Computed example of a mutant assay.
Amino acid sequence: MKKIIIAIISLSTILVSCGTEGGKKSDKTVEDQTNEVKNEDAVTEEVSDDKSGDAICLLDKLSVRATPDDKGKWITSMSLGEKVYYTGESVTDSVSKKEYLKIKLIDGKEGWSRATFLAVDGKVGVMTQDANVYKRPDLLTKTDTKYSPMDIIAVVATQDDWAQVKGKRAEGQYIEEVWVKADNISDKSVDIAAAKFAGLAMAKETMTDRIKALQEIVDNSDFSETSFMDLIKDKIRDYESKNKAVDVQDVKVEE
């Protein structure tokens, strides 16, 4: 009888002991899982705070400087539509109140540029035709302004068949952030490049220089597939017509 009682007591002790150890093990597992969740939350929070990413330059010859201010040492300049890398660092000049972003170019150069003329997380595009401007992605918010063909912009958001764009209109004075119908935009590199060089050509001082620069685009086989070829040829004919009119006027004055 004594042997039976001792056996029962021993068995009970073992079960209690195992239960305690099991409880400790379970508690430790919960604690580990909790820590893992906290760690995952911390990582998620860190990623969400990271503002770095690609950015699009919205102004031709935009300066890149060594320090975040207008008097900083000039390093280089960027091209309209050029894609750069935004490091996530930003500084607001205490005097001018202008915000600067630190960027890195494809050749490795780093510096600071005005935030106003950069579209972070944007994708470069170009208007293929006249595009009505809207305040919001709603036909009821149409404005009296339009984008023109070959206007280079950055697409910063999309919604259904709408695109939110940031850029300067050919007839505008400032960088705007508005909505247009997405089917008005081309993201083809040949269209973007042709539009960029056509814009530089049309900004030249004399009609003769404009004609020459536009003709160079037409003659360049690299641009043969651009959807703007007919438009560029029309511009050449228009400038040639105006040039002839000026020549005729000069002849009449001389007579």
Rank of each mutant, 00 (worst) to 15 (best):
V190I: 07
Y134P: 07
D54P: 00
V253K: 15
K28S: 11
A42F: 01
Y86T: 02
C57M: 04
D54L: 15
L140N: 13
S79L: 12
T141Y: 04
D160C: 03
K51P: 07
K61Y: 14
A163V: 02
I236Y: 15
T158A: 09
E82K: 08
G53A: 09
M1E: 01
D151Q: 05
C18Q: 07
E31V: 10
K38H: 04
E31G: 02
V253C: 07
D60K: 02
V133S: 09
W112S: 06
A163L: 04
D32T: 03
E216P: 00
V251Y: 01
V253E: 08
V16C: 12
G122K: 03
D32Q: 06
E21A: 04
Y85G: 11
I175H: 02
N243Q: 09
G72L: 03
V64M: 14
Q173D: 05
V30E: 01
K196P: 06
I4T: 08
K188G: 10
D222K: 08
I232R: 14
K83H: 07
I211V: 14
G53W: 04
M202H: 02
S90W: 01
I56H: 09
T20Y: 15
K102T: 01
A170T: 04
D144Y: 02
Y147W: 06
R237Y: 03
A193Y: 13
E99H: 04
S79Y: 08
T208I: 09
K146P: 00
V246I: 13
D130K: 12
E21M: 06
D151C: 03
T141W: 03
I185R: 13
W112R: 11
V155M: 06
M150H: 02
G172C: 02
A42N: 08
T116G: 12
T116N: 14
V190F: 13
